[in-house]
Design a binder for these strands. Structure first.
Lengths: 199, 199
DNA sequence: ATGATTTTTTGCGAATTGGTACAAAATGTC
DNA sequence: GACATTTTGTACCAATTCGCAAAAAATCAT
Protein backbone atom coordinates (compact mmCIF):
# COMPACT_ATOMS: atom_id res chain seq x y z
CA UNK A 1 0.00 0.00 0.00
CA UNK A 2 1.59 3.27 -1.04
CA UNK A 3 1.15 5.60 1.88
CA UNK A 4 3.53 8.46 1.14
CA UNK A 5 3.96 9.08 -2.56
CA UNK A 6 6.92 11.32 -1.84
CA UNK A 7 5.98 14.52 -3.75
CA UNK A 8 3.34 17.19 -3.39
CA UNK A 9 0.08 15.55 -2.34
CA UNK A 10 -2.83 15.54 -4.69
CA UNK A 11 -5.53 18.08 -4.07
CA UNK A 12 -8.24 15.82 -5.46
CA UNK A 13 -9.54 12.30 -5.09
CA UNK A 14 -9.23 10.58 -8.46
CA UNK A 15 -12.38 8.57 -7.89
CA UNK A 16 -14.63 11.52 -7.10
CA UNK A 17 -13.02 13.59 -9.85
CA UNK A 18 -13.77 10.83 -12.33
CA UNK A 19 -17.35 10.71 -11.19
CA UNK A 20 -17.66 14.48 -11.53
CA UNK A 21 -16.28 14.27 -15.05
CA UNK A 22 -18.74 11.49 -15.79
CA UNK A 23 -21.62 13.68 -14.64
CA UNK A 24 -20.48 16.47 -16.95
CA UNK A 25 -20.25 14.14 -19.95
CA UNK A 26 -23.58 12.60 -18.96
CA UNK A 27 -25.38 15.93 -19.09
CA UNK A 28 -23.67 17.42 -22.12
CA UNK A 29 -22.44 14.55 -24.24
CA UNK A 30 -18.86 14.14 -25.40
CA UNK A 31 -18.44 16.77 -28.10
CA UNK A 32 -20.28 19.48 -26.28
CA UNK A 33 -18.21 19.03 -23.12
CA UNK A 34 -15.11 21.21 -23.04
CA UNK A 35 -12.00 20.64 -20.99
CA UNK A 36 -12.80 23.88 -19.20
CA UNK A 37 -16.15 22.46 -18.15
CA UNK A 38 -14.47 19.29 -16.95
CA UNK A 39 -11.90 21.30 -15.05
CA UNK A 40 -14.63 23.35 -13.42
CA UNK A 41 -16.64 20.26 -12.50
CA UNK A 42 -13.71 18.43 -10.98
CA UNK A 43 -12.11 21.47 -9.38
CA UNK A 44 -8.89 20.54 -11.14
CA UNK A 45 -7.11 22.58 -13.74
CA UNK A 46 -6.47 21.32 -17.21
CA UNK A 47 -2.88 20.13 -16.84
CA UNK A 48 -3.78 18.12 -13.75
CA UNK A 49 -6.73 16.62 -15.58
CA UNK A 50 -4.48 15.72 -18.42
CA UNK A 51 -1.84 14.20 -16.16
CA UNK A 52 -4.42 12.16 -14.26
CA UNK A 53 -6.66 10.87 -17.04
CA UNK A 54 -5.02 11.58 -20.37
CA UNK A 55 -6.74 13.50 -23.10
CA UNK A 56 -10.44 14.24 -23.42
CA UNK A 57 -11.43 11.03 -25.14
CA UNK A 58 -9.45 8.97 -22.71
CA UNK A 59 -11.30 10.65 -19.85
CA UNK A 60 -14.60 9.99 -21.57
CA UNK A 61 -13.78 6.33 -21.99
CA UNK A 62 -12.76 6.09 -18.33
CA UNK A 63 -16.09 7.68 -17.40
CA UNK A 64 -17.78 5.21 -19.67
CA UNK A 65 -16.11 2.29 -17.91
CA UNK A 66 -17.09 3.75 -14.59
CA UNK A 67 -20.75 3.87 -15.61
CA UNK A 68 -20.47 0.43 -17.17
CA UNK A 69 -19.32 -0.78 -13.78
CA UNK A 70 -22.57 0.41 -12.21
CA UNK A 71 -24.46 -1.27 -14.99
CA UNK A 72 -22.54 -4.47 -14.43
CA UNK A 73 -23.45 -4.39 -10.75
CA UNK A 74 -27.13 -3.95 -11.54
CA UNK A 75 -27.05 -6.83 -14.01
CA UNK A 76 -25.20 -8.98 -11.53
CA UNK A 77 -27.81 -8.17 -8.96
CA UNK A 78 -30.58 -9.26 -11.31
CA UNK A 79 -28.66 -12.40 -12.23
CA UNK A 80 -28.36 -13.46 -8.60
CA UNK A 81 -31.87 -12.53 -7.58
CA UNK A 82 -33.87 -15.24 -5.84
CA UNK A 83 -37.14 -13.57 -6.71
CA UNK A 84 -39.34 -14.82 -9.56
CA UNK A 85 -38.55 -13.59 -13.04
CA UNK A 86 -41.22 -10.93 -13.17
CA UNK A 87 -40.14 -9.38 -9.90
CA UNK A 88 -36.48 -9.53 -10.86
CA UNK A 89 -37.07 -7.73 -14.14
CA UNK A 90 -39.36 -5.24 -12.56
CA UNK A 91 -36.84 -4.38 -9.88
CA UNK A 92 -34.16 -4.04 -12.51
CA UNK A 93 -36.27 -1.64 -14.56
CA UNK A 94 -37.37 0.31 -11.51
CA UNK A 95 -33.76 0.83 -10.51
CA UNK A 96 -32.85 1.91 -14.03
CA UNK A 97 -35.70 4.40 -14.20
CA UNK A 98 -34.65 5.84 -10.88
CA UNK A 99 -31.19 6.51 -12.27
CA UNK A 100 -32.47 7.79 -15.62
CA UNK A 101 -34.80 10.28 -13.98
CA UNK A 102 -32.17 11.60 -11.58
CA UNK A 103 -29.85 14.50 -12.20
CA UNK A 104 -29.37 18.03 -10.91
CA UNK A 105 -30.66 19.61 -14.13
CA UNK A 106 -33.50 17.26 -14.96
CA UNK A 107 -33.65 13.70 -16.26
CA UNK A 108 -30.50 12.53 -18.02
CA UNK A 109 -31.41 9.06 -19.24
CA UNK A 110 -28.54 6.62 -19.56
CA UNK A 111 -24.97 7.81 -19.93
CA UNK A 112 -24.17 5.08 -22.41
CA UNK A 113 -27.28 5.10 -24.57
CA UNK A 114 -27.66 8.86 -24.63
CA UNK A 115 -24.09 10.03 -25.19
CA UNK A 116 -22.18 7.27 -26.99
CA UNK A 117 -24.28 6.80 -30.16
CA UNK A 118 -23.72 10.37 -31.30
CA UNK A 119 -19.98 9.72 -31.46
CA UNK A 120 -20.06 6.06 -32.37
CA UNK A 121 -20.44 6.50 -36.12
CA UNK A 122 -17.15 8.34 -36.57
CA UNK A 123 -15.17 7.11 -33.57
CA UNK A 124 -14.21 3.46 -33.58
CA UNK A 125 -13.12 3.41 -29.92
CA UNK A 126 -16.41 4.75 -28.64
CA UNK A 127 -18.26 2.47 -31.02
CA UNK A 128 -16.41 -0.54 -29.62
CA UNK A 129 -17.17 0.52 -26.05
CA UNK A 130 -20.84 0.93 -26.91
CA UNK A 131 -20.98 -2.43 -28.63
CA UNK A 132 -19.40 -4.14 -25.64
CA UNK A 133 -21.84 -2.49 -23.25
CA UNK A 134 -24.84 -3.54 -25.35
CA UNK A 135 -23.57 -7.08 -25.42
CA UNK A 136 -23.13 -7.12 -21.69
CA UNK A 137 -26.73 -6.00 -21.22
CA UNK A 138 -27.97 -8.70 -23.57
CA UNK A 139 -25.94 -11.40 -21.88
CA UNK A 140 -26.66 -10.18 -18.36
CA UNK A 141 -30.40 -10.08 -18.87
CA UNK A 142 -30.44 -13.56 -20.32
CA UNK A 143 -29.50 -15.14 -17.01
CA UNK A 144 -32.79 -14.47 -15.22
CA UNK A 145 -34.69 -15.78 -18.23
CA UNK A 146 -32.51 -18.89 -18.39
CA UNK A 147 -33.03 -19.51 -14.69
CA UNK A 148 -36.79 -19.18 -15.06
CA UNK A 149 -36.74 -21.57 -17.97
CA UNK A 150 -34.68 -24.09 -16.02
CA UNK A 151 -37.20 -23.87 -13.18
CA UNK A 152 -40.05 -24.52 -15.56
CA UNK A 153 -41.49 -21.05 -15.19
CA UNK A 154 -41.11 -20.47 -18.92
CA UNK A 155 -42.07 -22.78 -21.79
CA UNK A 156 -39.29 -25.29 -22.56
CA UNK A 157 -38.94 -23.91 -26.07
CA UNK A 158 -38.56 -20.30 -24.92
CA UNK A 159 -35.70 -18.49 -26.66
CA UNK A 160 -34.11 -16.89 -23.63
CA UNK A 161 -31.50 -14.99 -25.63
CA UNK A 162 -34.22 -13.44 -27.76
CA UNK A 163 -36.34 -12.54 -24.74
CA UNK A 164 -33.31 -10.95 -23.12
CA UNK A 165 -32.62 -8.85 -26.20
CA UNK A 166 -36.19 -7.59 -26.23
CA UNK A 167 -35.95 -6.70 -22.55
CA UNK A 168 -32.67 -4.93 -23.28
CA UNK A 169 -34.40 -3.02 -26.06
CA UNK A 170 -36.97 -1.75 -23.60
CA UNK A 171 -34.13 -0.63 -21.36
CA UNK A 172 -32.53 1.30 -24.23
CA UNK A 173 -35.83 2.93 -24.98
CA UNK A 174 -36.41 3.88 -21.37
CA UNK A 175 -33.06 5.65 -21.46
CA UNK A 176 -34.01 7.75 -24.46
CA UNK A 177 -37.57 8.38 -23.31
CA UNK A 178 -36.40 9.62 -19.93
CA UNK A 179 -34.04 12.06 -21.59
CA UNK A 180 -36.81 13.22 -23.92
CA UNK A 181 -38.91 14.20 -20.93
CA UNK A 182 -41.43 11.40 -20.55
CA UNK A 183 -42.97 11.16 -17.11
CA UNK A 184 -41.83 8.61 -14.57
CA UNK A 185 -45.32 7.12 -14.64
CA UNK A 186 -45.15 6.56 -18.39
CA UNK A 187 -41.78 4.85 -18.03
CA UNK A 188 -43.00 2.61 -15.23
CA UNK A 189 -46.02 1.69 -17.29
CA UNK A 190 -43.83 0.72 -20.23
CA UNK A 191 -41.61 -1.35 -17.94
CA UNK A 192 -44.58 -3.09 -16.36
CA UNK A 193 -46.25 -3.88 -19.67
CA UNK A 194 -43.08 -5.18 -21.23
CA UNK A 195 -42.42 -7.46 -18.28
CA UNK A 196 -45.97 -8.72 -18.56
CA UNK A 197 -45.51 -9.32 -22.26
CA UNK A 198 -42.21 -11.17 -21.83
CA UNK A 199 -43.04 -13.51 -18.93
CA UNK B 1 -45.52 30.37 -58.62
CA UNK B 2 -42.53 32.67 -58.37
CA UNK B 3 -40.58 32.15 -61.57
CA UNK B 4 -38.06 34.96 -61.63
CA UNK B 5 -36.88 36.02 -58.17
CA UNK B 6 -35.25 39.10 -59.67
CA UNK B 7 -31.71 38.93 -58.20
CA UNK B 8 -28.73 36.68 -58.71
CA UNK B 9 -29.91 33.10 -59.03
CA UNK B 10 -29.11 30.60 -56.34
CA UNK B 11 -26.24 28.25 -57.03
CA UNK B 12 -27.78 25.47 -54.92
CA UNK B 13 -31.05 23.61 -54.51
CA UNK B 14 -32.31 24.21 -50.97
CA UNK B 15 -33.80 20.73 -50.76
CA UNK B 16 -30.66 18.84 -51.71
CA UNK B 17 -28.54 21.17 -49.59
CA UNK B 18 -30.75 20.43 -46.61
CA UNK B 19 -30.41 16.74 -47.20
CA UNK B 20 -26.63 17.05 -47.44
CA UNK B 21 -26.58 18.94 -44.17
CA UNK B 22 -28.77 16.23 -42.65
CA UNK B 23 -26.29 13.59 -43.72
CA UNK B 24 -23.47 15.48 -42.07
CA UNK B 25 -25.36 15.84 -38.81
CA UNK B 26 -26.42 12.20 -39.06
CA UNK B 27 -22.85 10.96 -39.23
CA UNK B 28 -21.30 13.35 -36.72
CA UNK B 29 -24.00 14.48 -34.37
CA UNK B 30 -24.86 18.09 -33.66
CA UNK B 31 -21.98 19.34 -31.53
CA UNK B 32 -19.27 17.63 -33.49
CA UNK B 33 -20.49 19.08 -36.80
CA UNK B 34 -18.88 22.39 -37.67
CA UNK B 35 -20.23 25.03 -39.99
CA UNK B 36 -17.19 24.41 -42.15
CA UNK B 37 -18.18 20.77 -42.48
CA UNK B 38 -21.73 21.77 -43.36
CA UNK B 39 -20.47 24.26 -45.91
CA UNK B 40 -18.23 21.63 -47.47
CA UNK B 41 -21.03 19.07 -47.57
CA UNK B 42 -23.52 21.41 -49.16
CA UNK B 43 -21.06 23.16 -51.45
CA UNK B 44 -22.27 26.47 -50.05
CA UNK B 45 -20.24 28.97 -48.11
CA UNK B 46 -21.11 29.92 -44.59
CA UNK B 47 -22.91 33.20 -45.30
CA UNK B 48 -25.17 31.49 -47.82
CA UNK B 49 -25.86 28.70 -45.37
CA UNK B 50 -26.76 31.21 -42.75
CA UNK B 51 -29.01 33.18 -45.07
CA UNK B 52 -30.79 30.06 -46.23
CA UNK B 53 -31.29 28.13 -43.00
CA UNK B 54 -30.43 30.39 -40.08
CA UNK B 55 -27.87 29.45 -37.48
CA UNK B 56 -26.48 26.00 -36.80
CA UNK B 57 -29.20 24.82 -34.44
CA UNK B 58 -31.89 26.05 -36.76
CA UNK B 59 -30.31 24.04 -39.57
CA UNK B 60 -30.14 20.99 -37.33
CA UNK B 61 -33.82 21.31 -36.43
CA UNK B 62 -34.73 21.67 -40.11
CA UNK B 63 -32.73 18.51 -40.82
CA UNK B 64 -34.54 16.86 -37.95
CA UNK B 65 -37.91 17.78 -39.43
CA UNK B 66 -36.77 16.47 -42.78
CA UNK B 67 -35.90 13.11 -41.29
CA UNK B 68 -39.08 13.12 -39.23
CA UNK B 69 -40.95 13.51 -42.51
CA UNK B 70 -39.44 10.26 -43.79
CA UNK B 71 -40.36 8.61 -40.52
CA UNK B 72 -43.89 9.92 -40.81
CA UNK B 73 -44.18 8.45 -44.27
CA UNK B 74 -43.01 5.05 -43.07
CA UNK B 75 -45.49 5.10 -40.20
CA UNK B 76 -48.24 6.18 -42.53
CA UNK B 77 -47.36 3.33 -44.80
CA UNK B 78 -47.64 0.86 -41.93
CA UNK B 79 -50.90 2.40 -40.79
CA UNK B 80 -52.49 1.97 -44.22
CA UNK B 81 -51.14 -1.51 -44.87
CA UNK B 82 -53.69 -4.12 -45.83
CA UNK B 83 -51.37 -6.93 -44.79
CA UNK B 84 -51.80 -8.80 -41.52
CA UNK B 85 -50.26 -7.27 -38.42
CA UNK B 86 -47.18 -9.46 -38.37
CA UNK B 87 -46.30 -8.72 -41.97
CA UNK B 88 -46.94 -5.01 -41.50
CA UNK B 89 -44.64 -4.79 -38.53
CA UNK B 90 -42.03 -6.91 -40.17
CA UNK B 91 -42.00 -4.75 -43.27
CA UNK B 92 -41.76 -1.67 -41.13
CA UNK B 93 -38.77 -3.02 -39.23
CA UNK B 94 -37.12 -4.30 -42.37
CA UNK B 95 -37.36 -0.88 -43.95
CA UNK B 96 -35.98 0.75 -40.81
CA UNK B 97 -33.03 -1.64 -40.65
CA UNK B 98 -32.27 -0.92 -44.29
CA UNK B 99 -32.00 2.77 -43.50
CA UNK B 100 -30.08 2.25 -40.28
CA UNK B 101 -27.48 0.08 -41.96
CA UNK B 102 -26.98 2.46 -44.88
CA UNK B 103 -24.46 5.25 -45.09
CA UNK B 104 -21.27 6.03 -46.99
CA UNK B 105 -19.07 5.55 -43.92
CA UNK B 106 -20.75 2.57 -42.33
CA UNK B 107 -24.03 2.11 -40.44
CA UNK B 108 -25.46 5.29 -38.99
CA UNK B 109 -28.51 4.08 -37.11
CA UNK B 110 -31.35 6.57 -36.80
CA UNK B 111 -30.72 10.29 -37.14
CA UNK B 112 -33.20 11.06 -34.37
CA UNK B 113 -32.35 8.38 -31.82
CA UNK B 114 -28.59 8.58 -32.33
CA UNK B 115 -28.00 12.33 -32.46
CA UNK B 116 -30.77 14.08 -30.52
CA UNK B 117 -30.43 12.48 -27.07
CA UNK B 118 -26.87 13.73 -26.62
CA UNK B 119 -28.12 17.31 -26.87
CA UNK B 120 -31.57 16.84 -25.36
CA UNK B 121 -30.58 17.15 -21.73
CA UNK B 122 -29.28 20.70 -22.05
CA UNK B 123 -31.23 21.96 -25.06
CA UNK B 124 -34.95 22.36 -24.59
CA UNK B 125 -35.69 22.80 -28.29
CA UNK B 126 -33.99 19.58 -29.32
CA UNK B 127 -35.57 17.82 -26.35
CA UNK B 128 -39.01 18.96 -27.49
CA UNK B 129 -38.35 17.80 -31.04
CA UNK B 130 -37.19 14.43 -29.76
CA UNK B 131 -40.21 14.06 -27.51
CA UNK B 132 -42.56 14.86 -30.37
CA UNK B 133 -40.86 12.34 -32.62
CA UNK B 134 -41.08 9.59 -30.00
CA UNK B 135 -44.75 10.32 -29.51
CA UNK B 136 -45.37 10.15 -33.22
CA UNK B 137 -43.74 6.71 -33.35
CA UNK B 138 -45.83 5.48 -30.44
CA UNK B 139 -49.04 6.79 -31.93
CA UNK B 140 -48.23 5.70 -35.46
CA UNK B 141 -47.41 2.15 -34.47
CA UNK B 142 -50.60 1.83 -32.46
CA UNK B 143 -52.77 1.97 -35.56
CA UNK B 144 -51.81 -1.44 -36.97
CA UNK B 145 -52.34 -2.99 -33.54
CA UNK B 146 -55.71 -1.29 -33.17
CA UNK B 147 -56.76 -2.48 -36.61
CA UNK B 148 -55.75 -6.04 -35.78
CA UNK B 149 -57.67 -5.88 -32.56
CA UNK B 150 -60.77 -4.55 -34.33
CA UNK B 151 -60.53 -7.44 -36.77
CA UNK B 152 -60.37 -9.96 -33.96
CA UNK B 153 -56.76 -10.89 -34.68
CA UNK B 154 -55.72 -9.83 -31.18
CA UNK B 155 -57.43 -10.61 -27.87
CA UNK B 156 -60.25 -8.14 -27.10
CA UNK B 157 -58.47 -7.02 -23.95
CA UNK B 158 -55.16 -6.32 -25.72
CA UNK B 159 -53.64 -2.98 -24.73
CA UNK B 160 -52.76 -1.71 -28.16
CA UNK B 161 -51.08 1.44 -26.89
CA UNK B 162 -48.80 -0.63 -24.68
CA UNK B 163 -47.97 -3.05 -27.47
CA UNK B 164 -47.17 -0.14 -29.75
CA UNK B 165 -44.81 1.37 -27.20
CA UNK B 166 -42.98 -1.92 -26.86
CA UNK B 167 -42.65 -2.17 -30.64
CA UNK B 168 -41.39 1.41 -30.68
CA UNK B 169 -38.84 0.47 -28.04
CA UNK B 170 -37.50 -2.25 -30.28
CA UNK B 171 -37.21 0.32 -33.05
CA UNK B 172 -35.21 2.64 -30.80
CA UNK B 173 -32.94 -0.22 -29.86
CA UNK B 174 -32.41 -1.24 -33.48
CA UNK B 175 -31.26 2.31 -34.14
CA UNK B 176 -28.62 2.18 -31.42
CA UNK B 177 -27.57 -1.38 -32.15
CA UNK B 178 -27.03 -0.61 -35.81
CA UNK B 179 -24.82 2.33 -34.92
CA UNK B 180 -22.89 0.17 -32.46
CA UNK B 181 -22.01 -2.20 -35.24
CA UNK B 182 -24.34 -5.16 -34.80
CA UNK B 183 -24.79 -7.24 -37.92
CA UNK B 184 -27.82 -6.91 -40.14
CA UNK B 185 -28.67 -10.52 -39.35
CA UNK B 186 -28.72 -9.84 -35.61
CA UNK B 187 -31.01 -6.86 -36.15
CA UNK B 188 -33.39 -8.83 -38.33
CA UNK B 189 -33.47 -11.60 -35.75
CA UNK B 190 -34.39 -9.13 -33.03
CA UNK B 191 -37.10 -7.64 -35.23
CA UNK B 192 -38.53 -11.06 -36.07
CA UNK B 193 -38.53 -12.25 -32.49
CA UNK B 194 -40.14 -9.11 -31.19
CA UNK B 195 -42.87 -9.27 -33.79
CA UNK B 196 -43.46 -12.87 -32.81
CA UNK B 197 -43.60 -11.91 -29.17
CA UNK B 198 -46.04 -9.05 -29.74
CA UNK B 199 -48.58 -10.68 -32.07
C1' DA C 1 18.08 23.13 6.19
C1' DT C 2 18.94 21.21 1.53
C1' DG C 3 17.55 18.68 -2.30
C1' DA C 4 14.61 15.35 -4.77
C1' DT C 5 10.01 14.57 -6.27
C1' DT C 6 5.42 15.20 -7.41
C1' DT C 7 1.58 18.24 -8.09
C1' DT C 8 -0.47 22.66 -8.93
C1' DT C 9 -0.63 26.96 -11.17
C1' DT C 10 -0.06 30.36 -14.61
C1' DG C 11 0.10 31.46 -19.04
C1' DC C 12 0.78 30.56 -23.56
C1' DG C 13 -0.22 29.19 -28.52
C1' DA C 14 -1.83 27.35 -32.66
C1' DA C 15 -6.08 25.95 -34.40
C1' DT C 16 -10.93 25.99 -34.75
C1' DT C 17 -15.34 27.70 -33.54
C1' DG C 18 -19.93 30.23 -34.89
C1' DG C 19 -21.16 34.29 -36.93
C1' DT C 20 -20.90 38.62 -39.84
C1' DA C 21 -19.46 42.92 -42.82
C1' DC C 22 -18.65 44.19 -47.21
C1' DA C 23 -17.51 44.11 -51.84
C1' DA C 24 -17.99 41.49 -56.22
C1' DA C 25 -20.99 38.98 -59.30
C1' DA C 26 -25.20 37.69 -61.62
C1' DT C 27 -29.63 38.34 -62.72
C1' DG C 28 -34.35 41.07 -63.95
C1' DT C 29 -36.40 45.77 -64.87
C1' DC C 30 -36.53 49.95 -66.88
C1' DG D 1 -26.95 50.58 -71.11
C1' DA D 2 -28.05 52.03 -66.09
C1' DC D 3 -30.14 50.60 -61.90
C1' DA D 4 -32.27 47.80 -58.41
C1' DT D 5 -32.04 43.32 -56.28
C1' DT D 6 -30.43 39.08 -54.66
C1' DT D 7 -26.73 35.80 -53.98
C1' DT D 8 -21.93 34.68 -53.75
C1' DG D 9 -17.21 35.05 -52.25
C1' DT D 10 -13.50 36.96 -49.41
C1' DA D 11 -12.06 38.36 -45.37
C1' DC D 12 -12.48 39.12 -40.82
C1' DC D 13 -13.85 38.96 -35.85
C1' DA D 14 -14.09 37.72 -31.03
C1' DA D 15 -14.45 33.69 -28.47
C1' DT D 16 -13.41 29.18 -27.51
C1' DT D 17 -11.07 24.89 -28.37
C1' DC D 18 -7.44 21.34 -26.81
C1' DG D 19 -3.07 20.78 -25.39
C1' DC D 20 1.44 21.90 -23.32
C1' DA D 21 5.71 24.29 -21.36
C1' DA D 22 7.65 26.20 -17.56
C1' DA D 23 7.56 28.13 -13.10
C1' DA D 24 5.79 27.87 -8.37
C1' DA D 25 4.27 25.18 -4.40
C1' DA D 26 4.00 21.34 -1.24
C1' DT D 27 5.54 17.34 0.43
C1' DC D 28 9.32 13.49 1.76
C1' DA D 29 14.23 11.96 2.35
C1' DT D 30 18.55 12.99 3.96
Amino acid sequence: MSKKPRGRPRAYDPEVALWQALETFWANGFSRTSLDALAAATGMNRPSLYAAFGDKKSLYLKSFDCFAGQLHAALDNAAHSEAPLEATLHDFFRNAIEIYMSGPDGPRGCFIICTAPAEAAMDADIRAALKAALEEIDRGLEIPFAKAKAEGRLPPDADTAALARIAASVLHSLAVRARAGETKEALHALARQSVQSLC
